[in-house]
């Protein structure tokens, strides 16, 4: 199972607490993970990736194993530690409160 940590405003929208666990077939890529996430939580469509272009929205970033995966091509495979569930896939959103 792949563990995904959503930013707070999307946890509210998807009505989940804490991490989301997803099963992804085959060798999961950034794209297939996000597809699986949106399939399970259709209300997230358009919030992480742009509706039309499926590009990452510029106020969110993807991280895993302490590395920034935001600029990786969509078909790059996820790190093994994410695929095995040892490390979560983080979707981090810009916040501005102070």
């Amino acid at each position: 199972m792949i563990r995904v940590v959503l930013p707070y405003h999307l946890r509210t929208l998807a009505r989940v607490d804490g991490e989301v666990q997803l099963a992804v077939e085959g060798a999961p890529s950034l794209r297939s993970l996000l597809d699986a996430l949106e399939e399970r939580y259709p209300m997230l469509r358009g919030t992480i990736r742009d509706h039309g272009t499926l590009n990452r929205r510029p106020f969110l970033r993807y991280f895993a194993c302490a590395e920034d995966l935001s600029l990786e091509p969509p078909d790059s495979l996820l790190p093994a530690a994410v695929t095995s569930g040892a490390e979560p896939f983080l979707i981090v959103g810009s916040i501005a409160g102070g």
Partner: peptide
């Protein structure tokens, strides 16, 4: 920055590292 139960901290100091816009180009 803070929001609900979540916080983020960094030091932006180009050229030694990124700035806020490098991280989040748009709000």
């Amino acid at each position: 920055s803070i929001f609900r139960f979540h916080g983020q901290v960094s030091v932006f100091s180009p050229p030694a590292g990124p700035c806020y816009r490098c991280l989040y180009p748009e709000p």
